[in-house]
């Protein structure tokens, strides 16, 4: 494989890693199954594409995408905390509503950015060469988002956000309004997702209303791959492993295409991957338990194998 091929996968991996960091934030830190993502990702793309074609400066258009994602996350958070709609459904409702919003924002289902300035073309102009501009830009931006998240989750407020996902009763008794924290966290997570969508649109040269389908599954796949490969035990390593997980996922996708899968098959391959990873503890239990027990009893050890199931977290 040439470096060009690999660098393409790395570019993709890093730009989608920003989305995966958002998914990590909601699913792992807040412990919230947030399906808003499939709507907030194309929202970021739509807002950016619409504003750029209307002559806005690309960096402003990117910033607005971030703000739009913030609102999308807040919507899910408020539906869940104020109206007491289940987290999963709150996300689906926002996501469904966003489909119409995205079409409105773009005015049609596909908005090309050909010959329009993007932050990537601006950067290329600035450094006077477009060699690996995307790679450099995405390394810098994804690292910046990761480091921001690392910092935030270690602030006093960030500790409260993490505890809200871990033990809400406990952190309420320590004076935290867990409803407000959820809204804040979901807003931040979806801002990251929308930022990723915005950059992807600028990279590929168009925004499409259908580009969000399966985003959440892709994000989860990246998070899970990172966890399996690195078994992170701290926030810093967890976010690091999300970046790597996302890149590894893109390389895997590239290899799958090489092996002859059609691009349209990728969603089911990804879904299968996530199913496999999420069900690993259960599968281990039901398939390997008799075997493991046999060995254990031979060895005279009878530790509960079933503890592994508790470690497997939903979403």
């Amino acid at each position: 494989m040439s470096f060009n091929v690999i660098s393409g996968s790395i570019e993709q991996g890093l730009v989608f890693a920003i989305m995966a960091l958002g998914v990590y934030f909601s699913s792992r830190v807040l412990n919230f199954p947030d399906l808003t993502v499939d709507g907030s990702f194309p929202l970021g793309a739509a807002v950016t594409a619409a504003l750029i074609t209307q002559g806005w400066a690309p960096w402003m258009a990117t910033l607005m995408a971030l703000g739009a994602g913030l609102l999308a996350g807040a919507s899910t958070g408020l539906l869940n905390t104020k109206l007491r709609i289940s987290g999963m459904l709150a996300g689906i409702l926002t996501m469904t509503g966003l489909y119409s919003v995205n079409l409105r924002v773009m005015g049609r289902s596909n908005l090309p950015l050909l010959r329009q300035p993007t932050i990537l073309t601006r950067l290329a102009d600035y450094i006077g060469s477009d060699l690996r501009v995307a790679l450099i830009a995405f390394i810098v931006i994804s690292l910046a988002v990761k480091l921001f998240l690392d910092w935030f989750l270690h602030t006093e407020l960030g500790l409260a956000v993490r505890a809200t996902g871990d033990n809400p009763q406990m952190i309420r008794s320590q004076g935290v309004d867990t409803d407000a924290v959820k809204v804040l966290g979901l807003s931040m997570a979806n801002a990251m997702v929308a930022l990723s969508g915005s950059l992807v649109a600028q990279h590929q040269g168009f925004a499409d209303v259908g580009m969000g389908i399966g985003t959440i599954v892709t994000g989860l796949a990246s998070v899970i791959i990172g966890e399996v490969l690195f078994r992170p035990r701290t926030v810093f390593w967890a976010t690091t492993s999300v970046l790597f997980g996302s890149v590894v996922y893109r390389i895997a996708v590239f290899l799958a295409l090489r092996m002859g899968f059609a691009p349209t098959d990728l969603k089911i391959v990804t879904a299968a991957l996530v199913i496999l990873a999420l069900s690993a503890p259960v599968l281990q239990e039901s398939l390997a338990l008799p075997f493991v027990q046999g060995i254990r009893s031979l060895a005279g050890k009878r530790e509960a194998v079933s503890t592994s199931v508790k470690d497997g977290r939903p979403l």
Partner: peptide, 12 residues
């Protein structure tokens, strides 16, 4: 932080 509130200062 229970008695003094929470900021964006580093927690520990």
């Amino acid at each position: 932080c229970r008695s003094k509130g929470r900021t964006l200062g580093i927690g520990v």
